[in-house]
Computed example of a mutant assay.
Amino acid sequence: MAGMIAAPALSRARPRAVSNWLLTICVLIFAMVVVGGITRLTESGLSITEWKPITGAIPPLTQAQWEHQFQLYQRIPEYQQLNRGMTLTEFKNIFFWEWVHRQLGRVIGLVALLPLIWFAARKAIPAGYGWRTAIIFLGVCVQGAIGWWMVASGLSERTDVSHVRLAVHLLTALLIFAYTLWTALDLRSPEAQPRRIPTIGLWTLGALFVQLLFGAYVAGLDAGYAFSTWPLMGSELYPVGAPWLEPALRNFVDNPITVQFIHRWWAFVVLAFAVVLARRVKRAGGRRESILVHAAIGTQILLGIATLLTGVALHVAVAHQATAALLLASIVAAAHRLASASASPVENGMGATPLVPGAVAGR
């Protein structure tokens, strides 16, 4: 009797369709990261001073509405100290990018919610994946709140947003991106069996997230403008005459020169881990994933150098941020391919744990 009841439910599961939905979310998050980079680089992030998740979807449509939004912007320190004298037309330009960024957030929220309801109602989500898809939706909601928390830091006393909150905002987006991609790949594995992340994959992702953290600090502190030379900072490896904050640990968060220095050279730590991962996955039969990791890490390092040498040119810096997300995707895909090539704990009857804290395989 139990088998007769379970069989119809099992046949209604649609892992490939659920995977395609999650990959769509990944594409939208990637677009969000790119637009977020443009928003930051054009200093547009504080142009909308209110958080209206629903009614804010409609931009100003009349002259009076535009003037009202401009008046709200004129009250904050960024305008009063940096942009006094800005015209309404100039304001519209920065308003555009922040509005697009928030609009993408709303789209991602709907794409994460509506198909989830539909799949759940039709019992199309395979067993064991209901809570994972729910986590993805909740993560998207939390990310929206973090975005406003970040913007709020620049509305009263500062002329920009907190670089620490910016880092939290970016890393949360990329964490959701990585988790969603891993879940989508799990759903495409035979019988939708979850895979455990290999140790080398965990170390590579850890190294990359440190680099992404300092990249966010560089962006938030405008540290990319500190030195436009490479490999030396000016004429020295590290400028000995640079200001040093007290206590010393503050320099790893608040000192633009130290942050840029770490971001420059930690990239090669990521490179080392990425090469090891790429070689292992190639030996396991993942030649395509190996090529993607090599191409992404090489391109990303070259774009990082070019960002410095061009004085943080907008198109180069945006490409650098976009490639960071692609590098993350390639590493996740390579780690998943390596995990799939190994004997699956599920297939051995041992049980398995998806990409969550503590889910580490010994490879």
Rank of each mutant, 00 (worst) to 15 (best):
I136G: 01
G224T: 09
Q74V: 08
I5R: 11
L277P: 00
V259K: 01
I48Y: 10
R287E: 09
H68G: 06
Q80D: 05
F119I: 07
T24R: 07
A267V: 05
I38P: 00
F177A: 04
G311V: 15
K92C: 04
P239R: 08
L114M: 05
E289I: 14
K123D: 03
A242V: 15
F91C: 03
M150V: 11
R283H: 07
F261G: 03
E43L: 07
P59C: 11
F261V: 08
I117Q: 04
L245F: 00
V100E: 05
L28I: 12
T42N: 02
P256V: 10
G362R: 11
L249R: 14
Q80S: 08
V107H: 12
F177Q: 07
R16G: 04
A57H: 13
D160R: 14
A6F: 15
R40P: 01
A324R: 00
A9E: 03
Y79I: 10
A223F: 07
W21Q: 01
W182E: 00
T204V: 07
R106Y: 13
I135D: 09
C141W: 12
W66I: 00
E98S: 05
E157Q: 15
L208Y: 14
S162Q: 12
L113R: 14
Q63N: 11
F96V: 01
L41H: 14
A31N: 13
R106C: 11
A313E: 10
A2K: 15
I200K: 01
T229P: 10
E157T: 15
L249P: 15
L213G: 00
I29M: 05
I125L: 02
D160T: 15
G130H: 12
W266K: 02
Y225V: 00
L355A: 05
R122G: 07
N255P: 01
L181N: 07
L202P: 00
G358N: 09
L249T: 12
W118H: 01
Q103V: 12
L187I: 03
H294G: 14
